[in-house]
Write a protein that binds this DNA or RNA. Sequence first.
DNA 1: CAGTGGTCTAGACCACATT
DNA 2: ATGTGGTCTAGACCACTGT
Lengths: 238, 238
Amino acid sequence: MRKNKYHAIYKEWTDKIKTGEIKAGEALPSENELAESYNTSRETIRKALNLLSQNGFIQKIKGKGSIVIDVQKMSFPISGLVSFKEISKNFTAEPITTVHDFGLIKPDPFIKQQLNASSKDEIWKVIRSRAIGGENIILDKDFFLKKFVPTLSKQICEGSIYEYLEKELQLNISFAKKEIVVEDCTEEDRGYLDLEGFSHIVVVKNYVYLDNASLFQYTESRHRLDKFRFVDFARRGV
Amino acid sequence: MRKNKYHAIYKEWTDKIKTGEIKAGEALPSENELAESYNTSRETIRKALNLLSQNGFIQKIKGKGSIVIDVQKMSFPISGLVSFKEISKNFTAEPITTVHDFGLIKPDPFIKQQLNASSKDEIWKVIRSRAIGGENIILDKDFFLKKFVPTLSKQICEGSIYEYLEKELQLNISFAKKEIVVEDCTEEDRGYLDLEGFSHIVVVKNYVYLDNASLFQYTESRHRLDKFRFVDFARRGV
DNA sequence: CAGTGGTCTAGACCACATT
DNA sequence: ATGTGGTCTAGACCACTGT
Protein backbone atom coordinates (compact mmCIF):
# COMPACT_ATOMS: atom_id res chain seq x y z
CA MET A 1 0.00 0.00 0.00
CA ARG A 2 2.25 2.73 1.24
CA LYS A 3 5.71 2.84 -0.15
CA ASN A 4 7.51 3.75 3.06
CA LYS A 5 10.50 1.62 3.67
CA TYR A 6 9.99 1.49 7.42
CA HIS A 7 6.31 0.70 7.05
CA ALA A 8 7.08 -2.20 4.74
CA ILE A 9 9.52 -3.59 7.28
CA TYR A 10 6.94 -3.14 10.03
CA LYS A 11 4.38 -5.03 8.01
CA GLU A 12 6.77 -7.84 7.23
CA TRP A 13 7.49 -8.48 10.91
CA THR A 14 3.90 -8.15 12.11
CA ASP A 15 3.11 -10.91 9.63
CA LYS A 16 5.90 -13.10 10.96
CA ILE A 17 4.63 -12.59 14.49
CA LYS A 18 0.98 -13.14 13.63
CA THR A 19 1.63 -16.31 11.72
CA GLY A 20 3.81 -17.66 14.51
CA GLU A 21 6.94 -17.79 12.39
CA ILE A 22 8.47 -15.99 15.36
CA LYS A 23 7.08 -16.92 18.74
CA ALA A 24 6.58 -14.99 21.95
CA GLY A 25 9.78 -14.66 23.91
CA GLU A 26 12.03 -14.98 20.90
CA ALA A 27 14.26 -12.13 19.82
CA LEU A 28 14.31 -10.27 16.54
CA PRO A 29 17.66 -9.75 14.82
CA SER A 30 19.54 -6.76 16.20
CA GLU A 31 19.04 -3.34 14.71
CA ASN A 32 22.42 -3.45 13.05
CA GLU A 33 21.71 -6.82 11.50
CA LEU A 34 18.34 -5.65 10.25
CA ALA A 35 19.84 -2.48 8.83
CA GLU A 36 22.37 -4.58 6.99
CA SER A 37 19.94 -7.16 5.67
CA TYR A 38 17.45 -4.55 4.46
CA ASN A 39 20.29 -2.48 3.12
CA THR A 40 19.06 0.58 4.95
CA SER A 41 20.08 2.81 7.82
CA ARG A 42 19.62 1.99 11.47
CA GLU A 43 17.25 4.92 12.09
CA THR A 44 14.88 3.55 9.47
CA ILE A 45 14.96 0.14 11.15
CA ARG A 46 14.26 1.87 14.44
CA LYS A 47 11.14 3.53 13.03
CA ALA A 48 9.81 0.12 12.08
CA LEU A 49 10.67 -1.36 15.47
CA ASN A 50 9.07 1.56 17.29
CA LEU A 51 5.86 0.88 15.41
CA LEU A 52 6.03 -2.75 16.49
CA SER A 53 6.62 -1.66 20.06
CA GLN A 54 3.80 0.89 20.13
CA ASN A 55 1.35 -1.64 18.79
CA GLY A 56 2.22 -4.30 21.32
CA PHE A 57 4.15 -6.73 19.15
CA ILE A 58 7.59 -6.43 20.70
CA GLN A 59 9.35 -5.16 23.79
CA LYS A 60 12.71 -3.48 23.28
CA ILE A 61 15.20 -4.11 26.05
CA LYS A 62 18.31 -2.02 26.27
CA GLY A 63 21.46 -4.08 25.99
CA LYS A 64 19.56 -7.22 25.02
CA GLY A 65 17.35 -6.87 22.00
CA SER A 66 13.76 -6.79 20.78
CA ILE A 67 11.67 -9.70 21.95
CA VAL A 68 8.22 -10.74 20.82
CA ILE A 69 5.36 -10.18 23.26
CA ASP A 70 2.81 -12.89 23.93
CA VAL A 71 -0.12 -11.88 21.81
CA GLN A 72 -2.43 -14.69 22.83
CA LYS A 73 -3.36 -13.44 26.27
CA MET A 74 -6.22 -11.58 24.69
CA SER A 75 -7.61 -11.82 21.24
CA PHE A 76 -5.76 -9.23 19.35
CA PRO A 77 -6.30 -5.58 20.27
CA ILE A 78 -9.09 -4.18 18.16
CA SER A 79 -8.99 -0.95 20.05
CA GLY A 80 -8.73 2.51 18.69
CA LEU A 81 -10.67 3.53 15.69
CA VAL A 82 -12.51 0.59 14.25
CA SER A 83 -15.69 0.43 12.27
CA PHE A 84 -18.36 -2.15 12.90
CA LYS A 85 -17.28 -4.11 9.84
CA GLU A 86 -13.82 -4.53 11.29
CA ILE A 87 -15.12 -5.50 14.69
CA SER A 88 -17.46 -8.09 13.31
CA LYS A 89 -14.60 -10.02 11.73
CA ASN A 90 -13.96 -11.34 15.21
CA PHE A 91 -17.39 -12.91 15.39
CA THR A 92 -18.13 -16.16 13.69
CA ALA A 93 -21.77 -15.39 13.06
CA GLU A 94 -22.81 -13.27 10.12
CA PRO A 95 -23.67 -9.71 11.16
CA ILE A 96 -26.70 -7.99 9.66
CA THR A 97 -27.14 -4.25 9.44
CA THR A 98 -30.58 -2.63 9.34
CA VAL A 99 -31.04 1.06 8.56
CA HIS A 100 -33.92 2.46 10.60
CA ASP A 101 -33.56 6.14 9.99
CA PHE A 102 -31.69 8.05 7.32
CA GLY A 103 -31.85 11.68 6.30
CA LEU A 104 -30.68 15.27 6.48
CA ILE A 105 -31.57 17.20 9.60
CA LYS A 106 -31.06 20.57 11.15
CA PRO A 107 -28.96 20.23 14.28
CA ASP A 108 -30.79 19.99 17.57
CA PRO A 109 -28.99 21.56 20.53
CA PHE A 110 -27.35 18.29 21.58
CA ILE A 111 -25.87 17.44 18.20
CA LYS A 112 -24.95 21.04 17.63
CA GLN A 113 -22.80 20.93 20.69
CA GLN A 114 -21.27 17.53 19.95
CA LEU A 115 -20.22 18.59 16.46
CA ASN A 116 -19.42 22.24 17.17
CA ALA A 117 -21.97 22.95 14.45
CA SER A 118 -23.72 26.20 13.63
CA SER A 119 -27.48 26.45 13.17
CA LYS A 120 -26.95 26.74 9.44
CA ASP A 121 -25.07 23.44 9.14
CA GLU A 122 -26.92 20.48 7.73
CA ILE A 123 -26.29 17.06 9.23
CA TRP A 124 -26.72 13.51 8.02
CA LYS A 125 -28.43 11.37 10.61
CA VAL A 126 -28.18 7.59 10.37
CA ILE A 127 -29.68 5.12 12.81
CA ARG A 128 -28.69 1.50 12.33
CA SER A 129 -28.99 -1.69 14.32
CA ARG A 130 -26.54 -4.56 14.11
CA ALA A 131 -27.68 -8.14 14.49
CA ILE A 132 -25.34 -10.99 15.28
CA GLY A 133 -26.63 -14.50 15.62
CA GLY A 134 -30.20 -13.30 15.04
CA GLU A 135 -30.17 -10.82 17.92
CA ASN A 136 -30.08 -7.05 17.54
CA ILE A 137 -27.40 -6.13 20.03
CA ILE A 138 -25.83 -2.88 18.80
CA LEU A 139 -27.49 0.43 17.93
CA ASP A 140 -25.35 2.87 15.99
CA LYS A 141 -26.34 6.52 15.79
CA ASP A 142 -24.16 8.45 13.33
CA PHE A 143 -24.12 12.16 12.62
CA PHE A 144 -22.02 13.60 9.80
CA LEU A 145 -21.56 17.25 8.91
CA LYS A 146 -22.85 17.69 5.37
CA LYS A 147 -20.14 20.17 4.50
CA PHE A 148 -17.66 17.29 4.65
CA VAL A 149 -19.97 14.57 3.32
CA PRO A 150 -21.94 16.16 0.50
CA THR A 151 -23.75 12.99 -0.61
CA LEU A 152 -24.84 9.88 1.21
CA SER A 153 -27.45 7.24 0.53
CA LYS A 154 -29.41 4.67 2.46
CA GLN A 155 -27.76 1.99 0.38
CA ILE A 156 -24.28 3.09 1.42
CA CYS A 157 -25.37 3.01 5.05
CA GLU A 158 -26.32 -0.63 4.68
CA GLY A 159 -22.70 -1.39 3.90
CA SER A 160 -19.64 0.31 5.29
CA ILE A 161 -19.90 4.08 5.48
CA TYR A 162 -16.20 4.32 6.22
CA GLU A 163 -15.23 2.50 3.10
CA TYR A 164 -17.34 4.99 1.17
CA LEU A 165 -15.87 7.99 2.95
CA GLU A 166 -12.29 6.90 2.42
CA LYS A 167 -12.45 5.24 -1.00
CA GLU A 168 -15.10 7.34 -2.74
CA LEU A 169 -14.96 10.70 -1.05
CA GLN A 170 -11.23 10.46 -0.37
CA LEU A 171 -11.68 11.72 3.16
CA ASN A 172 -8.73 11.02 5.39
CA ILE A 173 -9.93 10.00 8.81
CA SER A 174 -7.11 10.80 11.14
CA PHE A 175 -7.99 10.46 14.81
CA ALA A 176 -10.84 10.13 17.27
CA LYS A 177 -11.65 10.83 20.86
CA LYS A 178 -13.62 8.07 22.47
CA GLU A 179 -15.65 7.92 25.66
CA ILE A 180 -17.21 4.81 27.17
CA VAL A 181 -19.99 5.09 29.73
CA VAL A 182 -23.05 3.12 30.83
CA GLU A 183 -26.49 4.74 30.51
CA ASP A 184 -30.10 3.86 31.18
CA CYS A 185 -31.80 2.31 28.19
CA THR A 186 -33.95 4.68 26.18
CA GLU A 187 -37.22 4.00 24.40
CA GLU A 188 -35.21 4.08 21.18
CA ASP A 189 -32.92 1.32 22.46
CA ARG A 190 -35.93 -0.77 23.43
CA GLY A 191 -37.50 -0.19 20.05
CA TYR A 192 -34.58 -1.31 17.93
CA LEU A 193 -32.70 -3.81 20.07
CA ASP A 194 -33.39 -7.18 21.65
CA LEU A 195 -32.60 -6.09 25.17
CA GLU A 196 -33.74 -9.17 27.05
CA GLY A 197 -34.61 -7.23 30.13
CA PHE A 198 -31.36 -5.33 30.50
CA SER A 199 -32.07 -1.89 31.93
CA HIS A 200 -28.69 -0.37 31.07
CA ILE A 201 -26.59 -0.11 27.96
CA VAL A 202 -22.91 0.52 27.20
CA VAL A 203 -22.47 3.67 25.15
CA VAL A 204 -19.32 4.36 23.13
CA LYS A 205 -19.21 7.99 22.06
CA ASN A 206 -16.86 8.80 19.23
CA TYR A 207 -15.73 12.18 18.01
CA VAL A 208 -14.01 11.62 14.68
CA TYR A 209 -11.62 14.05 13.01
CA LEU A 210 -10.16 14.42 9.53
CA ASP A 211 -6.48 14.92 8.84
CA ASN A 212 -6.92 18.65 8.73
CA ALA A 213 -8.07 18.38 12.35
CA SER A 214 -11.71 19.25 11.65
CA LEU A 215 -14.40 17.36 13.55
CA PHE A 216 -16.74 15.85 11.00
CA GLN A 217 -18.60 13.01 12.73
CA TYR A 218 -20.17 12.20 16.06
CA THR A 219 -21.23 8.63 16.71
CA GLU A 220 -22.90 6.78 19.53
CA SER A 221 -22.51 3.05 19.47
CA ARG A 222 -24.87 1.48 21.99
CA HIS A 223 -24.05 -2.11 22.99
CA ARG A 224 -26.10 -4.58 24.97
CA LEU A 225 -24.28 -5.16 28.26
CA ASP A 226 -23.58 -8.85 27.83
CA LYS A 227 -22.20 -8.44 24.31
CA PHE A 228 -19.85 -5.58 24.94
CA ARG A 229 -16.09 -6.07 24.92
CA PHE A 230 -13.28 -3.58 24.52
CA VAL A 231 -9.60 -4.44 24.45
CA ASP A 232 -6.67 -2.10 24.53
CA PHE A 233 -2.90 -2.09 24.59
CA ALA A 234 -1.21 0.73 26.44
CA ARG A 235 2.36 1.70 27.15
CA ARG A 236 3.10 3.49 30.35
CA GLY A 237 4.59 6.90 30.80
CA VAL A 238 4.30 9.89 28.57
CA MET B 1 12.96 14.11 35.29
CA ARG B 2 14.44 12.46 32.21
CA LYS B 3 17.23 14.25 30.53
CA ASN B 4 16.19 13.56 26.95
CA LYS B 5 16.26 16.64 24.83
CA TYR B 6 13.19 15.66 22.83
CA HIS B 7 11.26 14.75 25.93
CA ALA B 8 12.01 18.11 27.51
CA ILE B 9 10.75 19.86 24.39
CA TYR B 10 7.63 17.68 24.41
CA LYS B 11 6.96 18.59 28.02
CA GLU B 12 7.46 22.28 27.38
CA TRP B 13 4.81 22.33 24.65
CA THR B 14 2.28 20.15 26.45
CA ASP B 15 2.46 22.72 29.23
CA LYS B 16 1.89 25.58 26.83
CA ILE B 17 -1.13 23.78 25.39
CA LYS B 18 -2.58 22.77 28.74
CA THR B 19 -2.28 26.25 30.20
CA GLY B 20 -3.84 27.76 27.11
CA GLU B 21 -0.78 29.76 26.17
CA ILE B 22 -1.39 28.23 22.76
CA LYS B 23 -5.00 27.67 21.82
CA ALA B 24 -6.74 25.05 19.73
CA GLY B 25 -6.41 25.78 16.03
CA GLU B 26 -3.22 27.76 16.37
CA ALA B 27 -0.01 26.55 14.79
CA LEU B 28 3.28 25.72 16.44
CA PRO B 29 6.46 27.16 14.96
CA SER B 30 7.74 25.16 12.02
CA GLU B 31 10.15 22.30 12.60
CA ASN B 32 13.02 24.30 11.19
CA GLU B 33 12.25 27.24 13.44
CA LEU B 34 12.02 24.98 16.46
CA ALA B 35 15.28 23.25 15.58
CA GLU B 36 16.92 26.63 15.35
CA SER B 37 15.48 28.05 18.56
CA TYR B 38 16.34 24.93 20.57
CA ASN B 39 19.70 24.75 18.89
CA THR B 40 19.14 21.14 17.93
CA SER B 41 18.56 19.03 14.84
CA ARG B 42 15.27 18.72 13.04
CA GLU B 43 14.96 14.98 13.74
CA THR B 44 15.07 15.67 17.46
CA ILE B 45 12.33 18.25 17.10
CA ARG B 46 10.33 15.72 15.12
CA LYS B 47 10.57 13.17 17.93
CA ALA B 48 9.06 15.72 20.28
CA LEU B 49 6.31 16.63 17.81
CA ASN B 50 5.50 12.98 17.17
CA LEU B 51 4.95 12.51 20.89
CA LEU B 52 2.59 15.49 20.87
CA SER B 53 0.77 14.00 17.91
CA GLN B 54 0.46 10.50 19.37
CA ASN B 55 -0.93 11.88 22.60
CA GLY B 56 -3.55 14.01 20.94
CA PHE B 57 -2.13 17.46 21.45
CA ILE B 58 -1.41 18.41 17.85
CA GLN B 59 -2.22 17.43 14.31
CA LYS B 60 0.61 17.61 11.79
CA ILE B 61 -0.46 18.65 8.32
CA LYS B 62 1.91 18.25 5.42
CA GLY B 63 2.75 21.51 3.73
CA LYS B 64 1.07 23.55 6.44
CA GLY B 65 2.32 22.93 9.93
CA SER B 66 1.46 21.52 13.35
CA ILE B 67 -1.78 22.80 14.79
CA VAL B 68 -3.14 22.40 18.27
CA ILE B 69 -6.11 20.06 18.71
CA ASP B 70 -9.11 21.10 20.77
CA VAL B 71 -8.55 19.38 24.05
CA GLN B 72 -11.76 20.49 25.72
CA LYS B 73 -14.20 18.20 23.93
CA MET B 74 -13.60 15.66 26.64
CA SER B 75 -11.85 16.02 29.92
CA PHE B 76 -8.34 15.05 29.15
CA PRO B 77 -7.60 11.48 28.17
CA ILE B 78 -6.78 9.49 31.25
CA SER B 79 -6.65 6.33 29.25
CA GLY B 80 -3.96 3.75 29.15
CA LEU B 81 -2.23 2.66 32.26
CA VAL B 82 -3.43 4.71 35.17
CA SER B 83 -3.58 3.83 38.80
CA PHE B 84 -6.53 4.72 40.98
CA LYS B 85 -4.59 7.59 42.54
CA GLU B 86 -4.14 9.18 39.16
CA ILE B 87 -7.76 8.68 38.19
CA SER B 88 -9.04 10.17 41.39
CA LYS B 89 -7.32 13.47 40.72
CA ASN B 90 -10.18 14.14 38.36
CA PHE B 91 -12.73 13.88 41.12
CA THR B 92 -13.31 16.73 43.49
CA ALA B 93 -14.33 14.55 46.40
CA GLU B 94 -11.70 12.88 48.53
CA PRO B 95 -11.30 9.18 47.74
CA ILE B 96 -10.90 6.67 50.55
CA THR B 97 -9.25 3.29 50.16
CA THR B 98 -10.13 0.35 52.39
CA VAL B 99 -8.10 -2.86 52.40
CA HIS B 100 -10.43 -5.83 52.91
CA ASP B 101 -8.10 -8.70 52.20
CA PHE B 102 -4.34 -8.92 52.07
CA GLY B 103 -2.01 -11.90 52.02
CA LEU B 104 0.06 -14.48 50.23
CA ILE B 105 -1.82 -17.24 48.45
CA LYS B 106 -1.19 -20.26 46.32
CA PRO B 107 -2.63 -19.71 42.88
CA ASP B 108 -6.07 -21.08 42.20
CA PRO B 109 -6.67 -22.25 38.63
CA PHE B 110 -8.13 -18.94 37.49
CA ILE B 111 -5.28 -16.78 38.74
CA LYS B 112 -2.77 -19.33 37.61
CA GLN B 113 -4.00 -18.93 34.11
CA GLN B 114 -4.25 -15.14 34.22
CA LEU B 115 -0.66 -14.80 35.41
CA ASN B 116 0.85 -17.75 33.54
CA ALA B 117 1.95 -18.90 36.98
CA SER B 118 3.16 -22.31 38.07
CA SER B 119 1.74 -24.14 41.08
CA LYS B 120 4.91 -23.32 43.01
CA ASP B 121 4.56 -19.56 42.55
CA GLU B 122 3.34 -17.53 45.46
CA ILE B 123 1.01 -14.65 44.83
CA TRP B 124 0.09 -11.51 46.72
CA LYS B 125 -3.67 -11.02 46.83
CA VAL B 126 -5.07 -7.60 47.64
CA ILE B 127 -8.75 -6.69 47.76
CA ARG B 128 -9.55 -3.01 48.16
CA SER B 129 -12.61 -0.85 47.84
CA ARG B 130 -12.56 2.78 46.82
CA ALA B 131 -15.03 5.25 48.23
CA ILE B 132 -15.77 8.59 46.64
CA GLY B 133 -18.25 10.96 48.19
CA GLY B 134 -19.03 8.44 50.91
CA GLU B 135 -20.02 5.67 48.49
CA ASN B 136 -17.98 2.55 47.82
CA ILE B 137 -18.08 2.40 44.04
CA ILE B 138 -14.91 0.60 42.94
CA LEU B 139 -13.60 -2.80 43.95
CA ASP B 140 -9.97 -3.49 43.06
CA LYS B 141 -8.67 -7.05 43.10
CA ASP B 142 -4.90 -7.15 42.62
CA PHE B 143 -2.67 -10.19 42.18
CA PHE B 144 1.12 -9.84 42.10
CA LEU B 145 3.66 -12.58 41.49
CA LYS B 146 5.85 -12.75 44.60
CA LYS B 147 8.96 -13.47 42.57
CA PHE B 148 8.78 -9.90 41.30
CA VAL B 149 7.38 -8.30 44.46
CA PRO B 150 9.23 -9.94 47.37
CA THR B 151 7.73 -7.79 50.10
CA LEU B 152 4.42 -6.01 50.47
CA SER B 153 2.41 -4.77 53.43
CA LYS B 154 -1.16 -3.88 54.23
CA GLN B 155 -0.01 -0.35 54.95
CA ILE B 156 1.45 0.05 51.47
CA CYS B 157 -1.83 -1.18 49.98
CA GLU B 158 -3.67 1.60 51.75
CA GLY B 159 -1.65 4.09 49.75
CA SER B 160 -0.39 3.69 46.23
CA ILE B 161 1.05 0.28 45.42
CA TYR B 162 2.44 1.61 42.17
CA GLU B 163 4.41 4.31 43.87
CA TYR B 164 5.92 1.61 46.08
CA LEU B 165 6.70 -0.68 43.17
CA GLU B 166 8.36 2.00 41.12
CA LYS B 167 10.07 4.11 43.79
CA GLU B 168 11.00 1.48 46.38
CA LEU B 169 11.33 -1.73 44.42
CA GLN B 170 12.59 0.04 41.29
CA LEU B 171 10.30 -2.03 39.10
CA ASN B 172 9.78 -0.57 35.67
CA ILE B 173 6.20 -1.02 34.62
CA SER B 174 6.23 -0.94 30.88
CA PHE B 175 2.93 -1.87 29.26
CA ALA B 176 -0.46 -3.44 29.87
CA LYS B 177 -3.21 -5.23 28.05
CA LYS B 178 -6.62 -4.11 29.11
CA GLU B 179 -10.05 -5.62 28.62
CA ILE B 180 -13.35 -3.99 29.50
CA VAL B 181 -16.50 -6.08 29.89
CA VAL B 182 -19.73 -6.02 31.90
CA GLU B 183 -20.46 -8.90 34.28
CA ASP B 184 -23.14 -9.94 36.74
CA CYS B 185 -22.46 -8.69 40.24
CA THR B 186 -20.95 -11.26 42.57
CA GLU B 187 -21.56 -11.75 46.26
CA GLU B 188 -18.15 -10.19 46.80
CA ASP B 189 -19.22 -7.07 44.92
CA ARG B 190 -22.38 -6.83 46.99
CA GLY B 191 -20.38 -7.30 50.17
CA TYR B 192 -17.88 -4.53 49.61
CA LEU B 193 -19.67 -2.00 47.42
CA ASP B 194 -22.72 0.23 47.68
CA LEU B 195 -24.45 -1.14 44.63
CA GLU B 196 -27.82 0.57 44.98
CA GLY B 197 -29.64 -2.20 43.23
CA PHE B 198 -27.44 -2.44 40.16
CA SER B 199 -27.30 -6.04 39.01
CA HIS B 200 -24.29 -5.63 36.71
CA ILE B 201 -20.82 -4.19 37.07
CA VAL B 202 -18.16 -2.89 34.69
CA VAL B 203 -14.98 -4.94 34.94
CA VAL B 204 -11.61 -3.64 33.74
CA LYS B 205 -9.13 -6.49 33.52
CA ASN B 206 -5.50 -5.48 33.39
CA TYR B 207 -2.48 -7.60 32.55
CA VAL B 208 0.57 -5.59 33.53
CA TYR B 209 4.10 -6.22 32.28
CA LEU B 210 7.57 -5.08 33.33
CA ASP B 211 10.14 -3.68 30.94
CA ASN B 212 11.69 -7.09 30.49
CA ALA B 213 8.33 -8.19 29.11
CA SER B 214 7.41 -10.43 32.04
CA LEU B 215 3.82 -10.46 33.23
CA PHE B 216 3.87 -9.65 36.94
CA GLN B 217 0.38 -8.44 37.83
CA TYR B 218 -3.24 -9.19 37.08
CA THR B 219 -5.86 -6.73 38.25
CA GLU B 220 -9.61 -6.54 38.11
CA SER B 221 -11.08 -3.13 38.70
CA ARG B 222 -14.82 -3.41 39.21
CA HIS B 223 -16.80 -0.19 38.78
CA ARG B 224 -20.40 0.56 39.61
CA LEU B 225 -22.19 1.14 36.31
CA ASP B 226 -23.22 4.73 36.89
CA LYS B 227 -19.75 5.82 38.00
CA PHE B 228 -17.75 4.27 35.21
CA ARG B 229 -16.11 6.39 32.55
CA PHE B 230 -13.28 5.61 30.17
CA VAL B 231 -11.79 8.05 27.70
CA ASP B 232 -9.34 7.36 24.96
CA PHE B 233 -7.51 9.04 22.14
CA ALA B 234 -6.75 6.97 19.07
CA ARG B 235 -5.06 7.64 15.77
CA ARG B 236 -6.24 5.69 12.78
CA GLY B 237 -4.26 3.32 10.66
CA VAL B 238 -1.32 1.18 11.58
C1' DC C 1 35.12 -6.56 26.60
C1' DA C 2 31.76 -6.67 22.55
C1' DG C 3 27.06 -6.20 21.40
C1' DT C 4 22.71 -4.18 22.22
C1' DG C 5 19.26 -0.43 22.07
C1' DG C 6 18.72 5.10 23.07
C1' DT C 7 19.84 9.60 21.65
C1' DC C 8 21.50 13.06 18.56
C1' DT C 9 23.47 15.33 14.41
C1' DA C 10 23.77 17.62 9.75
C1' DG C 11 22.82 16.91 5.85
C1' DA C 12 19.62 15.25 1.58
C1' DC C 13 15.50 14.59 -1.38
C1' DC C 14 10.51 14.25 -1.68
C1' DA C 15 5.29 15.51 -1.63
C1' DC C 16 2.29 18.87 -0.49
C1' DA C 17 0.18 23.68 0.32
C1' DT C 18 0.42 28.54 -0.28
C1' DT C 19 1.52 32.70 -2.66
C1' DA D 1 9.17 29.72 -5.92
C1' DT D 2 9.11 29.17 -1.08
C1' DG D 3 8.02 26.90 3.05
C1' DT D 4 6.04 23.01 5.23
C1' DG D 5 6.17 18.25 7.06
C1' DG D 6 7.71 13.03 5.60
C1' DT D 7 11.42 10.01 4.67
C1' DC D 8 16.10 8.47 4.63
C1' DT D 9 21.17 8.40 5.35
C1' DA D 10 25.80 7.65 7.61
C1' DG D 11 27.83 8.65 10.93
C1' DA D 12 28.60 9.57 16.39
C1' DC D 13 28.45 8.88 21.47
C1' DC D 14 26.02 6.98 25.40
C1' DA D 15 23.98 3.40 28.84
C1' DC D 16 23.04 -1.04 29.50
C1' DT D 17 23.65 -6.28 29.16
C1' DG D 18 26.12 -10.18 28.68
C1' DT D 19 30.72 -12.91 28.83
